[in-house]
Design a protein around this nucleic acid. Structure first.
Length: 874
RNA sequence: GCCGACGUAGCCCAAUUGGUAGAGGCAAGCGACUUAAAAUCGCUCAAGUGCGGGUUCGAGUCCCGCCGUCGGCACCA
């Protein structure tokens, strides 16, 4: 197949124009302050989710989104915009490190090699990136600022009144004033527990095979997302980022964004905000009256407190030891051991079957003084709410199942409004019953309000010291440390007393030491702990040896593109003012929650601290749909259905690849690859080529004699202007597939003409240019040389998009559909602006219509101008 | 189980947002060119829109109820 004669010399053309763009820096975007900066031009920032440069190189899924943004960018430049269209590398991460461990090659080497490969592949596709702005998260000049941002997080706290990050100094000052005599330890503890970056002892997902902890998001079904290794729970001291403080804003500020509603919903559900109350249950028989011996539960249904018939603690709950009676100790200990030994997966796997044991202890229900038993069960999660629940088996399915299994009391306290409801367990809203005069007879929302309170009124719980209103999030704080080598080191050290402190900004970047042995230590100590020289500082402090997760670098790369070589700031105020925010962000749905949530969080912190103008980073978001293999299955090495763009380019050229990526179907849709389809667009490009070019006797391509300086016909003019209009509109709305088919239509129309008007054809080249930049530039060059007076010799890339003329679009006569009772009966040709009465008369006079109306009364006549006339008769 | 997307010629997809179901491509067939084939050019073929109801003069499009495919979440109190 590869020996087949090329239908046009794409290989020569494409390399030539790519070199030209490189050398002339055609797509360089100027920043405020640059000599060639034009403040009059509007800006446009189109961003691709930057790739992880894996060893496999690109597959055809990568260029899908990249082609879409490239088309937009090339179009916007022609529309007079100053366009920011950058590319870079999310290059920290596990695969390079795993490779290093297995083959002894330094991850930097592997990474550089992979980047070079990716870059070469991208360049062959002819993307109009401004390569002067390339960023690489593993470059010390880049991660210096990642570390700098971490210091900002470390040195800030969340001020709850303004719901915004503030410098930690402000909190320090307040605290000193309020508690001047506080001990240093207490003071430190207070401050450190409020930083946006803090240390916590948490049950983490420890992955022995990878030798690291993983974020919840990186664990799928109890196994590591990367590598599919088993993951177990283990308490460890870790760096955390206080993203939960931003829970409300991360939900609220989604509103103004132009994102797919599904993605917004996904984020909302992930954040999982729920309003309710903390309720305190005293432990029965506890004489100490110590506050620490109170069980606090979180509930969204405080209106059902009277139906709470037992308490359940997570097996890991801190009060279990205190509560458990001698008689139950054996059972409880065994249960806790079993739960601890289970992986997350095993714990959720048989979620249908509830398990648990009685502790022997009792709690006092604060609303009625009733003594209710305390159980432990692993269906209560230690990481959500308070790790303890009040069980209301009549109105919660999980509690109902548990109570039924263990014979605990089920007490109805909400009556369904709809009497037909005869479920054993009613979880909906209804009317409070069997409770107390306080709420009996009230609707669920009213009863909740009585308990929790409303905006200006304190609720029963708070008045009686039994609880507090509380908002909880499913979202957890972000576990931010990894026990790996190939990541950003923390700009943190520990003094000899075990206190952490930040390194000063002038010590950045903190570079990882060169090491020969990257292997995990097999313990919780990260690989960096083996670099003794590096770890131990002169003043007996030691460096933090954890590294940051891969998400860190990708949290702010879109900012660095705006000002990529600034050594004084991560982004200058001018660059931020001018470029932000991102007008269009295109990438896969796999980042719908994590990356986008994390980036939004960092952006908000930097905004709060006054470093950024905008609240949100990405104005419009589009998810490209996955490209499947020819077999309709997900592309994967094991299935052997992966399509490599290099092969497609070798065979059909980059323009064909680009065009097919867009012609396959709507950008956001999942769709299968088809080499036959590639051939189809390749044939189209060859037709375009031959529209302009013909072979001479020696087989050399030259301008076709049919291309002439003649006036287009009315029909040609019409299709040209239709196409100008449609292609422009379709690019704006990202409907590239239909734009391309319109251009095919035009090509078919002009191909049939023996005399082809050069002015119209060149207009068409402009339309084709964003899609197939190489072939269109080349043809334009040839045509311009032959018609110097008519076609300017500039590159299409840097000249204006053609305008269209409405007058060319309208026909004098239109075909009108004639219906009787909604059924198509005839068509007729009428003047475009014929009055309704005339249309009606003409329609009724039609031979095919007569039989339908002769015997009937005409009830109504519906006329859609320029479309149809419908006669309703019976 | 919950949330979301999608079901239109053999295949990938259009359809001015309620107004002639077809723009484009693939495949198939026929013809022209050719000694022949490929390539090219021209022509042709095909579904009544997943299923069942409803609203309407008129439904692929709106409403209700199902079915199927693909993604995501899944004891979050």
């Amino acid at each position: 197949m590869s020996e087949r004669r090329k239908q046009y010399p794409f290989d020569e053309i494409e390399a030539k124009w790519q070199d030209c763009w490189d050398q002339e820096k055609t797509f360089r975007a100027s920043n405020p302050g640059d000599p060639d900066f034009d403040p009059e031009k509007p800006k446009y920032y189109a961003l691709d989710m930057f790739p992880y440069p894996s060893g496999q190189g690109l597959h055809v899924g990568h260029p899908e989104g990249y082609t879409a943004t490239d088309i937009i960018c090339r179009y916007k430049r022609k529309e007079g915009f100053n366009v920011l269209h950058p590319m870079g590398w999310d290059a920290f991460g596990l695969p390079a490190e795993q490779y290093a461990i297995e083959h002894g090659v330094h991850p930097r080497e592997t990474t550089e090699k992979n980047i070079a490969h990716f870059k070469a592949q991208l360049k062959r596709i002819g993307f109009s990136y401004d390569w002067d702005r390339e960023v690489n998260t593993t470059d010390p000049g880049y991660y210096r600022w990642t570390q700098w941002i971490f210091l900002k997080l470390y040195n800030s706290y969340f001020e709850t009144q303004s719901k915004a990050a503030r410098p930690i100094e402000e909190l320090i000052e307040k605290r000193r004033k309020a508690f001047p005599d506080e001990s240093k330890e207490d003071f430190n503890q207070y401050i450190n527990s409020r930083r946006l970056a803090y240390i916590d002892e948490v049950a983490v997902n420890w992955c022995p095979a990878l030798g690291t902890v993983l974020a919840n998001e990186e664990v799928v079904q109890g196994r590591s997302e990367r590598g599919d290794h088993p993951v177990e729970r283990k308490p460890m001291r870790q760096w955390m980022l206080r993203i939960t403080a931003y829970g409300d804003r991360l939900i609220e500020e989604l509103e103004d964004l132009d994102w797919p509603s599904g993605i917004k919903k996904l984020q909302q559900n992930w954040i999982g905000r729920s309003e309710g109350a903390d309720v305190h249950f005293a432990i029965a028989g506890d004489t100490t009256k110590d506050e620490a011996d109170t069980i606090t539960v979180f509930t969204t249904r405080p209106d059902t407190l009277f139906g709470a018939t037992y308490i359940v603690l997570a097996p890991e709950h801190g009060l279990v030891d205190h509560i458990t009676t001698g008689a139950q100790l054996g059972e409880v200990t065994a249960y806790r051991a079993a739960a601890a030994g289970k992986s997350e997966r095993e714990r959720t796997e048989n979620s249908k079957e509830k398990s648990g044991v009685f502790t022997g202890g009792y709690a006092i229900n604060p609303v009625n003084g009733e003594k209710i038993p305390i159980w432990i069960a692993d269906y209560v999660l230690t990481s959500y709410g308070t790790g303890a629940i009040m069980a209301v088996p009549a109105h919660d399915e999980r509690d109902h199942e548990f109570a039924s299994k263990f014979g605990l009391e089920i007490r109805q306290v909400v009556a369904p409004v709809d009497q037909d409801h005869n479920h054993a367990c009613f979880t909906g809203e209804g009317t409070a019953i069997n409770s107390s005069p306080l709420i009996d007879g009230l609707s669920t929302p009213e009863a909740k309000a009585v308990m929790i309170g409303t905006g200006n009124e304190t609720g029963w719980l708070e008045k009686n010291g039994a609880g507090m209103p509380r908002v909880n999030f499913k979202l957890r704080d972000w576990l931010f440390s990894r026990q790996r080598y190939w990541g950003e080191p923390f700009p943190i050290a520990w003094d000899k007393d075990g206190n952490h402190y930040p390194l000063s900004e002038d010590q950045l970047p903190v570079e990882a030491p060169a090491m020969d042995d990257f292997k995990p230590t097999g313990t919780a100590d990260p690989p960096l702990s083996k670099a003794h020289q590096w770890v131990n500082l002169e003043d007996q402090s030691t460096r933090e040896t954890n590294t940051m997760p891969q998400w860190a670098g990708s949290c702010w790369y879109y900012l660095r593109y705006c000002d990529p070589v600034n050594n004084d700031a991560f982004i200058s105020r001018e660059a931020d003012d001018y470029w932000m925010n991102v007008d269009l962000y295109v990438g896969g749905t796999e980042h719908a929650v994590l990356h986008l949530l994390y980036a939004r969080f960092w952006h908000k912190v930097l905004h709060d601290l006054g470093y950024l103008k905008t609240r949100e980073p990405f104005h419009k978001l589009v998810n490209q749909g996955m490209i499947l293999g020819e077999d309709g299955q997900k592309m994967s090495k094991s299935r052997g259905n992966v399509v490599n763009p290099d092969e497609v380019i070798n065979e059909y050229g980059a323009d064909s690849l680009r065009l097919y990526e867009m012609f396959m179907g709507p950008l956001e849709q999942v769709k299968p690859w088809s080499m036959k389809g590639v051939e189809g667009v390749y044939r189209f490009l060859a037709r375009v080529w031959r529209l302009f070019m013909e072979e001479d006797q020696e087989g050399k391509w030259q301008l076709s004699k049919k291309v002439q300086d003649v006036e287009p016909t009315k029909k040609q003019l019409r299709i040209l202007h239709e196409t100008i209009k449609k292609v422009g509109e379709d690019i704006e709305s990202l409907d590239f597939n239909t734009a391309i088919s319109q251009m095919m239509k035009l090509t078919n129309e002009f191909t049939s003409a023996d005399s082809r008007p050069v002015s119209s054809l060149v207009d068409f080249l402009h339309l084709l240019n964003p899609f197939a930049p190489h072939i269109s530039e080349e043809i334009n060059r040839v045509v311009a040389a032959a018609f110097p007076g008519i076609v300017p010799g500039h590159q299409l890339a840097t000249t204006s998009w053609p305008g269209f003329n409405e007058d060319c679009l309208v026909d004098d006569e239109v075909e009108i559909v004639v219906q009787v009772n909604g059924k198509l009966r005839d068509k007729m040709l009428v003047a475009k602006d014929a009055p309704d009465a005339e249309l009606e008369a003409a329609a009724k006079g039609l031979e095919k219509i007569q039989p339908f109306i002769e015997q009937a009364t005409v009830r109504k006549v519906i006329i859609v101008p320029g479309k149809l006339i419908n006669i309703v008769a019976n």
